[in-house]
Design a protein around this nucleic acid. Structure first.
Length: 236
DNA sequence: TGCCATGTTAAACT
DNA sequence: GAGTTTAACATGGC
């Protein structure tokens, strides 16, 4: 999405409407300074404020639709060269310096991503389970439940392993794979072949052992988790 | 056709 | 006050 909206960078917002809780009329006549993202946050930077979009579970967007979309419109921004539409998303206005609001080094897809800082943050929460740690947006901003399951499977780590008991080499592998898989995820999503590459998520059988995978809702996050009791090692 | 889920926040609880 | 649970959002996929 960030790539597709670049056509509106530097453009002035001619019209703004929608059922967002914030007043969209504030955006009219403001210029888009930049588009940024931090994990699952999409940021529309205006001169003195930032529009923060989060798509939650079912959010969507469209660009330059010819006919007015039938779906309930959360926000529509009109530009001289096209239109940007948002549906079913959370919209919030951020005031102040984004560098103070966001830790860019926590975003797994950001160029400022720091594996070293991620490892330090993990060391500070030894009692946390691996399945919860991977979903912690302050450590792995951008990682969601699918990526969690796939990363754990790929590094052969049991989701209920305690962070403090996991060997350093495996922690390093987790941090490295979280970033790598996120880039693969984007690549496969663009090719509409995301599911084709799932090895654990929603799977019935282990791709390595060919034995049934376990499906549970572990940890504090209680999110759907698929894992193999044979090849994913539990450290506790 | 009904149920479930790629996520987060805030209110309502304990 | 801290921690936990529930509701809300609202739609596509299976």
């Amino acid at each position: 999405m960030k790539e597709l909206v670049q056509q509106f960078k530097g453009k002035k917002i001619l019209q703004a409407e929608g059922n967002a809780k914030i007043d969209p009329s504030d955006f009219v006549n403001k210029k888009i300074v930049d588009f940024k993202s931090w994990g699952k946050h999409f940021l529309i930077c205006l001169p003195k404020a930032t529009i923060r979009i989060h798509f939650l579970m079912f959010g969507s967007y469209s660009i330059n639709e010819q006919t007015k979309p039938a779906r309930s419109l959360r926000l529509h921004l009109k530009f001289t060269n096209g239109d940007l539409y948002f549906y079913t998303c959370s919209i919030k206005i951020l005031e102040g310096d984004l560098d103070e609001i966001y830790d860019w080094s926590a975003d797994v897809m950001n160029e400022k991503w720091s594996a070293t800082k991620a490892i330090k943050k993990l060391k500070a929460i030894p009692g946390t389970l691996a399945c919860d740690a991977l979903l912690n947006q302050d450590i792995f901003s951008g990682v969601g439940n699918i990526i969690k399951n796939e990363v754990l499977f790929r590094i052969k780590l049991h989701p209920e392993s305690s962070i403090g008991k996991i060997p350093t080499a495996v922690i390093k592998a987790m941090v490295k794979e979280a970033r790598k898989y996120s880039f693969d995820f984007l690549k496969w999503k663009k090719a509409f072949e995301l599911k084709k590459h799932w090895l654990a998520h929603t799977k019935k059988m282990c791709a390595r052992c060919n034995i049934p995978l376990i499906k549970t809702y572990p940890g504090k996050t209680k999110r759907r988790t698929f894992f193999c009791t044979d090849c994913q090692i539990k450290y506790d």
